[in-house]
Design a protein around this nucleic acid. Structure first.
Length: 306
DNA sequence: AAGACGAAAGTGGTTGA
DNA sequence: TCAACAACTTTCGTCTT
């Protein structure tokens, strides 16, 4: 049995220890925090089954269905070549028939405006996700939210891009892979302001109630970007749990708090990063890092020896 | 020379009348 | 609709390593 299990090793530090973070769809090296694989939720199609039992248990059949293609990837395309399945030319009569079929398929598939808009919106979601390197499950979640928004007729008067970006923002938070409004806005074609407005609107109308983003959710990403070990990240999370208990995080920007925790943890574990570096990945200023870090030190009674 | 620290003024968004 | 407000940023000068 065990022979088949090739021990994976971290490409960064060679450690065989990993921490699985399902909610974030990440496989994180326990030693250095390197993100091995951010798509562990996407385990591929179950196209093959090796015995009768597996065949019966197989959950999905056929090509995988997805919410990110406007017709859920289930439509059949008529080939554009005028050949039959053997590659022979079609008779003129047959060609005319196929031509008419193609015409109707086009009309049915993306005929009305809503279908076309949906297709466009979902391609936008996909484009933005690619830019941000988001795992597939987040894209699916965003697509589901967008579809619901369409069904509830919430798009009228709002831009498709705005709502698409808002759906993605919501999906990120839902999946605990938060991105800031700024980050979304950067890869979007609309302003941060509009995304925020759309987000508030659809989350109210669709009754999506998301807790305010926890600074803890930012730790793996920031830690990884700074090349910090799992040890530092655990320490930072520990710090943040303490801080949350004492109400130090409410009313503060989660990225700033996360940055401060990372900074403290990095110093603590002898893997120091400068305030500048930490501030950069968290997209806040050094001043904010300092202020949060001062608060944390004082109120948590930490002795800081640098 | 680079990083840390802090004061002071400015910015954009929320809130409550 | 507007003003007060808190969080955060920008800028800049000083201190520390």
């Amino acid at each position: 049995m065990e022979k088949h299990e090739k021990r994976k090793k971290c490409p960064e530090c060679g450690s065989p220890k990993f921490v699985r973070v399902y909610e974030r769809a990440e496989l994180v090296c326990a030693e250095c925090g390197f993100i091995i694989h951010d798509k562990i939720m996407d385990m591929g199609p179950e196209w093959r089954a090796f015995d009768q039992e597996q065949r019966e248990r197989r959950g999905r059949v056929g090509a995988p269905m997805t919410f990110t293609i406007h017709d859920k990837g289930l439509s059949t395309m008529i080939d554009w070549r005028d050949r039959d399945s053997h590659g022979k030319d079609l008779t003129p009569k047959r060609r005319a028939q196929i031509y008419r079929l193609r015409k109707w398929q086009r009309r049915i598939r993306v005929s009305d405006a809503t279908e076309r808009n949906l297709a466009f919106a979902l391609s936008e979601v996909d484009r933005m996700s690619s830019h941000l390197g988001l795992p597939r499950n987040v894209r699916e979640a965003a697509a589901v939210i967008y579809r619901r928004a369409v069904e509830e007729r919430l798009i009228r008067g709002r831009s498709i891009e705005g709502v698409a970006a808002a759906a993605l923002y919501a999906a990120c938070r839902e999946c605990k892979v938060p991105r800031t409004l700024d980050e979304i806005a950067e890869v979007s074609r609309v302003s941060k302001k509009e995304i925020g407005r759309s987000y508030r609107f659809i989350s109210r109308e669709l009754l999506i109630h998301l807790r305010p983003t926890s600074p803890i959710d930012y730790i793996p990403r920031f830690g990884s970007e700074l090349g910090l070990s799992g040890e530092v990240q655990s320490k930072a999370i520990e710090l943040l749990k303490e801080a949350t208990k004492k109400g130090l995080t409410s009313g503060r920007g989660p990225t700033g708090v996360a940055a401060a925790a990372i900074y403290i943890a990095s110093v603590f574990c002898g893997e120091r990063r400068t305030q500048r570096d930490v501030a950069d990945v968290a997209r806040v200023t050094e001043v904010t890092v300092r202020n949060r870090y001062k608060e944390l030190c004082e109120k948590l009674g930490l002795d800081v020896e640098l």
